[in-house]
Design a protein around this nucleic acid. Structure first.
Length: 663
RNA sequence: GGCGAGAUAGCUCAGUUGGCUAGAGCACACGGUUCAUACCCGUGGUGUCGAGGGUUCGAAUCCCCCUCUCGCUACCA
């Protein structure tokens, strides 16, 4: 019976905050695939979880005054609740703070170290002892520390590195001989051209700058840095052990599918396979970097209150409508768009009109004409053949789409069944048959065919919208069929009685009623955000909360003398042109006092060259000249940057002469 | 700058190795119908298939070039 095992994973969610619908999409997609594979007869293991280590989490926990463990416990709980809310049928939920995972990561690290694939190295660079900072040659100012101006000396900071290059050829070979390995294929080309073919750099796999992580047991001041900790969840949690794995591991590894976001394809198709090679383990069969679900129009931002969360969607539309939307709206390769209006539209047109109404009208007719009894009389009509062909052929089409991971297309195939049923009702016109005493057997057969077709459709729908499928067959007083029965028509037991009063599966929504609720959700979200910001700011209420604030990493304190080393002056831009060889650079001629300096700046995304001319700007004048994209730059224009990367040049608040000193 | 992908109906997209009047869904309009959740079914597009050139009996589909968009990547004082 079993077709063998199928091991599918999602990426583990980073516990820095509540996942929004774009993150939740992945678990729903994985769930649909997992359920479908189970229905096909595979012995499925479906794993998801949370990634809980790292500096960011340590800092967030400190900011709210709790331990990192308490912080991640809370967020992991939130993640798990949402995963459960959307009916995901995962078999295991791994947390990177689980004891067994941490113990295994330590062993893996040691094994790779003993094998020589991990070596203790260093960030080599110029070190400023008072600042405790490393600098590259190019960052130095006049050969001295750019922060404090003191002398620096060549030094290195200890870190462990993984020898990526050792396995690069094997990986290139594997990717070339396994075209299905990286999906979609466009990602494969990116990986090959940008990373593998130019040559892989060794990867830093430990850190000493923070402590919230898996400690390297033979060198306790190091913690294992993200990828060796996070990626290994795929094997640690199913029983891998460098000293001898268990049977479960032997059964499930290699994974059949790693489902991940397109942003982390690189880590899953380069570093992860190489780690596995180093551990002498087989590689996963397939990695699918799915696109993103983006919010249309405005950018998603908590401060605006327009982030869409799965639980809000479930409150308004229900679990299956939420699942339907994300599964249907997400294409295979391009990003999908989500807005509340689109959700309502999809809900009404597909779920309420096509599916819900179909079930309702069919059940209603059986009740009205035959007291709910559905029986096959064998009185067929011309139009029956096409209905049966479409319905019994759907299963193969869905299977084909699912094999290619075209989940959105697969669910569309399911809906063609329901569309065909609606058409069949119009073709046969049961209400006309009902008026003719001689046509009673034909009428019964029509309703039987509909009931049977809907049962098949519901069975196909089960992987995508599990509870809806179950509700439908309950109304029809039957059970879901297995996939291998779906090419047969006529298995519905003749003479059964459908439910008397069908429950409305999806009540049509009025945008006018839903959108005010959305506004209420957004207002609440905004208020919550402001309250949190206020809490982080020591209880002080946040003024002008409409504007997002930005926190950046604090740099070393400097002395007044340090500051006085910097020379700022007002400059007037007298000419400006784009640097031909670059996308982001502008080259400006800046008049500072009586001299003119040429300054190159990466601000083309925010300013056109012609907009620059005539502006009075603030210039760091005594910066060591350097060449950018082959063009000499003799200073720096000061700019502010927001979270989206928009830039604003700093200009004097009152008109000042060119060359005026800024202090 | 390097590599890659794309530009088809108002919107989102299909269009296999070049071939019959270029399609689907949504939206819109009209018609039909009344079993049903004012639903369902049918009909409706003059779309320069991004611009230009070429190969061919024939090109949305192949080749060249141009414009624009997007992805990854590098530089971004």
């Amino acid at each position: 019976m079993s077709k063998g095992k199928y091991y599918i994973t999602t990426a583990i969610a980073y516990t820095s905050g509540k996942p929004h619908i774009g993150n939740t999409y992945e678990i729903i997609l994985a769930d649909a695939i997992a359920r479908y594979k189970r229905a096909e007869g595979y012995d499925v293991w479906f794993q998801t979880g949370t990634d809980e280590h790292g500096q960011k989490i340590q800092e967030k926990a400190e900011a709210v005054g709790i331990t990192p463990q308490a912080y991640v416990d809370e967020v992991a709980g939130v993640v798990k609740n949402i995963w459960d809310l959307v009916d995901s049928s995962y078999d295991s939920f791994v947390r990177t703070t689980d004891d067994d995972h941490e113990a295994c990561v330590k062993k893996i690290f040691k094994k790779l170290y003993d094998k020589g694939d991990i070596y203790k190295g260093a960030y080599e660079g110029m070190y400023c002892t008072p600042c405790e900072s490393f600098w590259t040659e190019s960052q130095l100012v006049d050969g001295k520390c750019p922060d404090c101006g003191r002398d620096v000396k060549p030094a290195k900071e200890e870190a462990y590195f993984f020898k990526m290059s050792k396995y690069a050829d094997r990986l290139i070979e594997h990717i070339n001989t396994h075209p299905e390995f990286i999906q979609p294929v466009s990602r494969k080309n990116e990986m090959m051209n940008n990373f593998l073919l130019p040559g892989l750099q060794d990867l830093c796999v430990s850190r000493t700058s923070f402590t919230w992580g898996v400690q390297v047991d033979f060198d306790p001041k190091h913690v294992v840095y993200v990828w060796l900790d996070a990626l290994t969840n795929y094997i640690t949690k199913i029983g891998y052990d460098p000293d001898g794995s268990n049977e479960m591991f032997a059964k499930n590894w290699p994974a059949d599918l790693h489902l991940i976001g397109k942003d982390i394809v690189r880590f899953h198709t380069i570093y992860w396979p190489i780690f596995l090679m180093a551990l002498d383990l087989p590689l996963p069969k397939q990695v699918f970097g799915h696109p993103w679900l983006l919010q249309g129009g405005d950018k998603m931002s908590k401060s605006k209150g327009n982030v869409i969360y799965a639980d809000d969607m479930v409150d308004l539309f229900g679990v299956d409508a939420t699942r339907y939307f994300v599964l249907h709206e997400m294409p295979f390769e391009n990003d999908g768009v989500i807005t509340w209006d689109l959700v309502i539209e999809r809900f009404n047109s597909d779920l309420a009109n096509i599916l819900g109404n179909l079930v309702n009208r069919t059940v209603s007719m059986s009740n009205k004409y035959f007291d709910g009894v559905v029986r096959s009389t064998g009185v067929t009509g011309e139009v029956d053949a096409d209905l049966k062909a479409v319905v019994t052929g759907a299963q193969a089409k869905v299977a084909d789409k699912m094999d290619k991971l075209r989940v959105a297309d697969a669910i569309s195939e399911v809906f063609t069944v329901f569309r065909r049923c609606n058409k069949y009702i119009d073709e046969t016109m049961p209400w006309v048959l009902a008026k003719d005493e001689a046509q009673q057997d034909r009428l019964a057969e029509v309703l039987y065919n509909l009931t049977e077709a809907i049962t098949i459709g519901a069975s196909l729908l089960h992987s995508f919208l599990p509870s809806t499928a179950e509700k439908i067959v309950a109304q029809l007083n039957t059970e879901l069929r297995s996939l291998d029965q779906l090419d047969q028509f006529g298995l519905y037991e003749s003479g059964k009685k459908v439910v008397e009063k069908p429950e409305i599966l999806f009540a049509r929504l009025d945008a006018k009623e839903v959108l005010p609720k959305v506004e209420a959700i957004q207002a609440a979200q905004k208020a919550e955000y402001e309250a949190e910001m206020a809490r982080l700011n020591g209880g002080a209420p946040v003024e002008a909360a409409e504007e997002a604030v930005i926190d950046i990493e604090a740099k070393e304190e400097i002395t007044f003398d340090d500051f006085m080393k910097l020379q700022f002056q007002v400059g007037e831009i007298i000419a400006c042109e784009a640097v031909p060889k670059s996308k982001k650079l502008l080259c400006s001629q800046v008049k500072i006092g009586s001299q003119v300096k040429q300054i190159v700046s990466g601000i083309r995304s925010s300013y056109a060259p012609e907009d620059m001319v005539g502006k009075k700007v603030m210039v760091l004048v005594n910066l060591k000249p350097a060449k950018l994209a082959g063009v000499l730059s003799e200073g720096m224009l000061l700019c502010a940057e927001d979270a989206e990367g928009n830039l604003a040049l700093l200009t004097p608040e009152k008109n000042m002469p060119s060359g005026a000193e800024i202090a």
